[in-house]
Amino acid sequence: MAGRVVHASAAPKPVGAYPHARRVGDLLFLSGIGPRDPASDAIPGNEYFADGRVRAYDITAQAHAVLANVRAVLEASGARWEDLVDVTAYLTDMARDFKAWNAVWAEYFPDPATAPCRTTLGITALPTPIAIELKCVAALKGDTP
Rank of each mutant, 00 (worst) to 15 (best):
N69A: 03
N69P: 05
N69M: 06
N69W: 01
V70G: 11
V70I: 15
V70Q: 12
V70L: 14
R71P: 02
R71V: 03
V73I: 15
V73N: 08
V73S: 09
L74R: 09
L74H: 07
L74S: 03
L74N: 08
E75P: 01
E75G: 00
A76C: 09
A76K: 08
A76V: 12
S77N: 06
S77G: 15
S77C: 06
G78A: 07
G78H: 07
G78Y: 01
A79R: 12
R80M: 10
W81G: 11
W81A: 09
E82D: 15
D83R: 08
L84I: 12
L84C: 10
L84S: 11
L84H: 11
V85F: 02
V85D: 02
D86T: 03
D86R: 09
T88A: 14
T88M: 11
A89W: 00
L91K: 03
L91P: 06
T92I: 15
T92S: 08
T92P: 10
D93I: 02
D93T: 06
M94H: 07
M94G: 00
A95V: 04
A95K: 15
A95T: 13
A95G: 10
R96Y: 03
D97M: 05
D97N: 14
D97R: 12
F98N: 13
F98C: 03
K99E: 15
K99R: 15
K99L: 10
K99Y: 01
W101D: 01
N102V: 07
N102A: 14
N102T: 13
A103D: 15
A103Y: 04
V104M: 02
W105Y: 14
W105P: 04
W105A: 02
W105C: 06
W105R: 11
W105G: 00
A106I: 02
A106H: 05
E107L: 11
E107R: 08
E107I: 08
E107D: 14
Y108L: 01
Y108R: 13
Y108G: 01
P110M: 09
P110T: 08
P110W: 08
P110V: 08
D111S: 12
A113D: 11
T114P: 00
T114E: 07
A115F: 07
A115W: 07
A115S: 14
A115V: 06
P116C: 06
P116Y: 05
C117Y: 11
R118T: 12
R118L: 12
R118D: 03
T119Q: 13
T120C: 11
T120G: 00
T120P: 05
T120E: 09
L121Y: 14
L121K: 14
L121T: 03
L121C: 11
L121W: 08
G122R: 02
G122Y: 02
G122T: 07
I123E: 00
I123Y: 05
T124A: 14
T124L: 07
L126F: 06
L126G: 02
P127W: 03
P127I: 05
T128L: 13
T128M: 08
I130R: 12
I130K: 08
I130G: 00
